[in-house]
């Protein structure tokens, strides 16, 4: 379950190290309240700069809200110590817009990372990782590093890494941006399959064709405000 209670995000009130990559003069989100039930699916839309990525950052705990309260999987992150917050992050899979792969690691090691952080043995994780890489069409690219792969291939690795640990929440920021239609369909099959298994899913996208093909409630942001939910 994801709950936002009158949440605001103002980068002027965020500590400099976290603010570094963001505009310092912008109120990113204002009075955002919503609830997504466990196992729910939401499309998140809005124009560029509307606050989609900021909203996702609050959901994957990259930033704390400057006002209001966030509740994820029954926990209030602001009340958790760092160790428990890290454990909560492991239950949230994220597909970043810029992939955020580790360039010095192979495709296999990038996908295996969440399982290794969860202390899964090499023997246990091997089957899951190879199966998932085969499923996203990269079975022959296990030992390739991100720089040796195309944008679409990198995105598929990012997707595989996000879902390999079977997260309770999956957040995706423009996950189909670098995929062709066939790959985008395969990805959405995977996402809906995970959703059927109980994973709560939020997908931020500009792709209205995609939204039309997979019917689900839509959250629309405009200038940092939630103008539509349902």
């Amino acid at each position: 379950m994801i709950r936002f209670f009158d949440v605001g995000l103002d980068y002027r009130h965020i500590a400099p190290p976290l603010r570094a990559q963001h505009p310092a003069d912008a109120t990113a989100l204002a009075s955002v309240s919503f609830e997504i039930e466990p196992g729910g699916f939401r499309w998140l839309t809005g124009a560029s700069g509307a606050g989609k990525t900021s909203l996702l950052k609050l959901m994957y705990l990259a930033l704390p809200p400057t006002t209001g309260r966030v509740e994820l999987l029954g926990e209030d992150p602001s009340r958790l110590n760092r160790r428990r917050k890290a454990l909560l992050r492991r239950r949230i899979g994220v597909v970043y817009q810029d992939f955020r792969l580790l360039r010095h690691l192979s495709a296999y090691d990038n996908v295996a990372l969440p399982l290794r952080l969860a202390q899964r043995s090499e023997r246990q994780l091997h089957a899951d990782v190879t199966e998932l890489l085969r499923w996203v069409g990269l079975a022959g690219r296990l030992e390739h590093r991100p720089d040796e792969l195309s944008g679409g291939e990198q995105q598929r690795i990012a997707i595989a890494r996000a879902v390999v640990a079977k997260p309770s929440i999956l957040l995706a920021d423009e996950p189909t941006g670098n995929l062709d239609d066939e790959q985008a369909d395969r990805l959405l099959h995977l996402i809906t399959a995970l959703n059927r298994l109980g994973t709560t899913i939020v997908v931020a996208t500009h792709n209205h064709g995609l939204i039309a093909r997979y019917s689900a409630p839509v959250m629309e942001l405009r200038a940092g405000r939630l103008v539509r939910h349902g």
Binding site: Y60, R82, R83, R89, R91, V94, L102, H104, L113, P114
Partner: peptide
């Protein structure tokens, strides 16, 4: 920094 932020985001403990 970027690699640390990624690993941190994936749920790595500070101690790790």
């Amino acid at each position: 920094r970027e690699a640390i932020e990624i690993i941190h985001g994936l749920g790595a403990q500070d101690a790790d």
